[in-house]
Design a protein around this nucleic acid. Sequence first.
DNA 1: GAAACTGGGTTCCAAAAGAGAACCTGTCAA
DNA 2: TTGACAGGTTCTCTTTTGGAACCCAGTTTC
Lengths: 161, 161
Amino acid sequence: MRWEDLDREHCSLARTLSVVGDRWTLMVLRECFLGMRRFEEFEARLGIARHVLADRLKKLAEAGVLAKHAYQERPRREEYRLTEKGLDLYPAILALVQWGDRYMAGPEGAPIVRVHKTCGKVMDGVVVCSECGEPVQARDIRVEAGPGAGDETLPRPQRAG
Amino acid sequence: MRWEDLDREHCSLARTLSVVGDRWTLMVLRECFLGMRRFEEFEARLGIARHVLADRLKKLAEAGVLAKHAYQERPRREEYRLTEKGLDLYPAILALVQWGDRYMAGPEGAPIVRVHKTCGKVMDGVVVCSECGEPVQARDIRVEAGPGAGDETLPRPQRAG
DNA sequence: GAAACTGGGTTCCAAAAGAGAACCTGTCAA
DNA sequence: TTGACAGGTTCTCTTTTGGAACCCAGTTTC
């Protein structure tokens, strides 16, 4: 299977990964969430090869995750900003970062902490059920075929959730 | 920068991606969360090249995300199961899947829905603040240097959150 | 008791993606 | 007119994939 075929897959994860399922893409998005917007900033902070960066930014813009905004004419200069669609990737980035904080950080702890502007406290994101509001873990979930399900979407007997 | 260097980066996302930041790895994990455990199952459902699958399973096992369990002796057969560390990746996978459901699904809707065993309803995961319990979005967050911060961790002025 | 099958791999080659460095294009300032 | 700056593109070389074939131990089938 090739990566261009992924967005035709019958699976939301595959479709998502066809847009952001690339290490550099996720690193670029991290920088966006830290406020970076310009080619130079991404390059300097990530140490990414320039043509790879150009390619990722272009793809993210085509996917509607980032949008180009001119911040200067003559010479025209553009920066990349997260769209609403891009901002909605925050839970995914946050979950990955928190997993890293927990399992991959050194003895000194997390390099960055997040402050919730609303309540002013250093916080973690907690995933709760949209219906009952209780915290959710992998074992609390059972999957079922949804409206867009195909034949091969689900396994036959389910051994785990 | 090479990928082997990523886990020495001063960033939890980079460290996380050094383990799971690969398209196939995330697809394998999705299958794990759907209950798949065996080499053959992964191969059949993903259409991944066998040596790439072998490599990913080995790396996930080395990272402690999956553990090998013998389910039969003579001939010895082993399957791969999520560890606690692996199960803790669920919020990340869930967030990516939900983003795909929202932005990448066809007109017929999501292929899979999730039922919360505790309350019995079809649910979505919602990220809330660990301190005040309010739902959290990207704009509600400000980052600060944490205990493990280095010089280059944060940008100078912060333009966005 | 030879042939085929099963599960879980490894090996080989060609194609694609990545790293690193050099080069290009407007515009302005010295 | 030389250089700097921002944002790319082009080049070559190495690494990683995709795809298919092969291996191996034990087991069933003919």
